[in-house]
Amino acid sequence: MFIQQIINGLTLGSVYSLIALGYTMVYGILEFINFAHGEIYMIGAYLGIIFLTFFTAVGLTTSNIYLSLFLTMILTIAFCCAYGYLIERVGYRPLRYAPRLSPLISAIGISIFLQNFVMFTQGATDKVIRVEALDGFVSVWGINLSYLQVAILTVSFVVMIGLNLFVNKTKIGTAMRATAQDKIMASLVGIDINMIISLVFVVGAGLASVAGVMVAGYYGLVNYHIGYIAGLKAFTAAVLGGIGSIQGAMIGGLILGIVETLGSAYVSSDYKDVYAFLILIVVLLIKPTGLLGQRIEDKI
């Protein structure tokens, strides 16, 4: 039973990690909280349902379910990446040199806008989806893993390893890290800062949309305000791991997921949303930079 809960926690946690990566990467480079990021996750979940419904209407789902699931995933990721790009382009780039709190307000405006846009076009009621092909589970040593749990764990694992390789081994990844360290120096050595920033938003949005689609399948229902609380918790995860650190976001998300699942299983599920923040406050008071964050000295 305990191990079952841990598995559930890991599933939830890997979703948080995927969203948290977007927060932490943007924060690492631009040092601002991208409040609209949670909405990308929500839009991803909605798009997943919309595309799957479309494929069902066309008749692709009955002939080849796996192809249609794959296409749904790819299309959703592509659309969400474009959303990420556009949000940065429209909402944040004009504010690059504005006072620090301005992009924050812009992000909140975009977040309110996207939430209400989805509510307005898709209705305020829950949207339900059920994919029969993904029902059922595998049993390993008496622990039940549903197909979707396996899928979520595998996909997040692969995506996170891929991201790590991308950031640490490729040339663009090096450019990203250089930009995070010092934007002006990076531009002096010939890195296109605007391109890198756009890229960070695109990658972050892509990761969030993966999480969104998988959660839509896992819980079977989405609502226009799921992005808000998931975004808050993912941001908490990013801070917990040390904001700006990619590995930190992954670890922070997993810890948060496990704590939340264990808390609601063994203490009280009414206070499900409190555990995340309690953990955060305790960690920050003991180690103010988060688990893997580096101490930034004051520049005088």
């Binding site: 429209v90 909402g91 004009p94 504010l95 504005a98 301005s102 992009p103 307000i105 812009s106 909140i108 405006g109 975009i110 977040s111 309110i112 806008f113 996207l114 939430q115 209400n116 846009f117 307005f120």
Partner: peptide
């Protein structure tokens, strides 16, 4: 439309 416009106004004001 209300909150839709509020969100938009916030972004425009700040920009």
């Amino acid at each position: 439309f209300r909150m839709l416009i509020v969100g938009l106004v916030l972004v425009l004001l700040v920009i």
